[in-house]
Design a protein around this nucleic acid. Structure first.
Lengths: 247, 247
DNA sequence: TTTAGTTAGCGTAATAATTACACTAAGTTT
DNA sequence: AAACTTAGTGTAATTATTACGCTAACTAAA
């Protein structure tokens, strides 16, 4: 049985990755996403939804297709619904590609976080996608520039409230890596001593016992995030802040 | 020219009002919303969207229709997209009422805040709607019970960050009214002296010069929220908290 | 007119959180 | 062995939060 497409609703994902220094976003070539030769014009990964799938399932489908990974961290942002956000050439392009008669498309934006490992870099490269530094993105197709902007502000808002930083870091990480991530996302400098104090006082980060090797300076100790403890403390509480950041 | 309906996207609104003591929500009879005789089964006000309107416009249309007011405070929550959230009897009912062939409907939930004045009470009563205390609502049509729950948690989250309380209060209000509102929404008791201290220290609330009359106790002074100052301070800042509540 | 009842409105001291700030430790490279 | 680099630590000053009880100003009832 053929799955039917819902021609008026799409999902677009702002996929963030962190390479240790800069915050990056996954972009796909508008044409190669559609299986044609690359146009050089980029957009966020996305798709119309199927009639029998929820938005979460659609978002996971898009992410798995682009990265090969299932169950990536995913959070809904909001709907972009300007009746003219997709029109003219873009509408024709969508109709043709999906083989439907699209007329007016609203999109539900998600952001998603993943650990930038080699595997992923190969996989996305094979898909004709690229990881762009968030600061250097000048232009995107459709209204994807505003979706990206919304993604960035959602990310920095959420970073202050939930332990989402660990979705962007390897399982074992140094305090400095964590701090660099906070600095990259929030765009501020943080005092190292005070940062360590707060992070460690949270009780959700613990030493793993091993440390960096092969670095040309005092090797840092590795920590890990205690996911289970967080989940336990979280249960039932309507609102629990990871760290009481003053904003 | 006939406006076309988009049969797969609807908007539902959790409309909050505050009567000085309790937080209330606007509910409509499922049948009288559709122009039939009342069924006694209630739901949140909502509607399918038109093909040529944005979600915000649709939400405003619904609100104006129910309350007679334009430009009510409105904030998008999230999309409810379970493929089976509307099915069977409900799908037939929607198809019949709107005269479309609905198949699968996702809904975008908004919450909205208004001042419960007599005028509004008359208007909504005339529409066959009722204002129910949030705590006393046992059952709602479709998945509206979960939309309401989401609305409540969005409201208490936002109350700590933006000056939305003033959307629920008259232009001039007493500190006690403001505090009762916070207590009703958050479901906690707050120390009056500390509350006054924090609220007044924000700098956004100022004395109007007049006070209550006809009350059987020391009359309270009226304050007003300085909207213009807030807007000015807000401009440019990605993030500005109304009050630094510890959560 | 006095008394009782009701809510408004205020201040302080103890505790907790945040900030600002500079040096030694432990590796690698030259 | 010296130079280089980042890791890792503590304290004192400031600021924010909490806990707590009495007098003021009005109305209604006696």
């Amino acid at each position: 049985m053929e799955r039917r497409i819902n021609s008026s609703v799409s999902v677009d994902c702002v996929v963030f990755g962190f390479d240790g220094t800069a915050l990056k976003v996954l972009l796909v070539d508008r044409n190669s996403e559609m299986g044609r030769s690359p146009s050089g014009e980029y957009k966020l990964p996305g798709s119309l939804i199927f009639q029998d799938e929820s938005l979460e399932v659609a978002a996971n489908r898009i992410l798995e297709n682009m990265t090969g990974l299932k169950n990536i961290f995913l959070r809904q942002m909001r709907v972009f619904s300007d009746p003219h956000r997709v029109s003219g050439e873009d509408i024709r392009w969508i109709s043709e590609y999906y083989g439907v008669s699209a007329e007016r498309v609203i999109t539900v934006a998600y952001y998603s976080l993943l650990k930038l490992e080699k595997r992923i870099l190969y996989y996305t490269a094979g898909k004709g996608a690229r990881w762009a530094e968030v600061g250097s993105i000048k232009k995107l197709a459709l209204d994807h520039k505003s979706i990206l902007a919304e993604g960035l502000s959602a990310l920095s808002r959420d970073l202050m409230q939930s332990p989402i930083a660990f979705e962007l870091l390897p399982r074992r990480f140094t305090i400095r890596q964590l701090q660099s991530l906070y600095e990259a996302i929030l765009g501020v400098e943080i005092d190292n001593r005070n940062f360590r104090k707060k992070i460690l006082a949270s009780g959700y980060i613990s030493l793993t016992g091993d440390r960096e090797t092969g670095v040309t300076h005092k090797p840092a100790r590795f920590y890990s995030f205690n996911h289970a403890t967080w989940e336990r403390d979280m249960r039932g509480k309507a609102k629990l802040n990871f760290i009481n950041w003053r904003i």
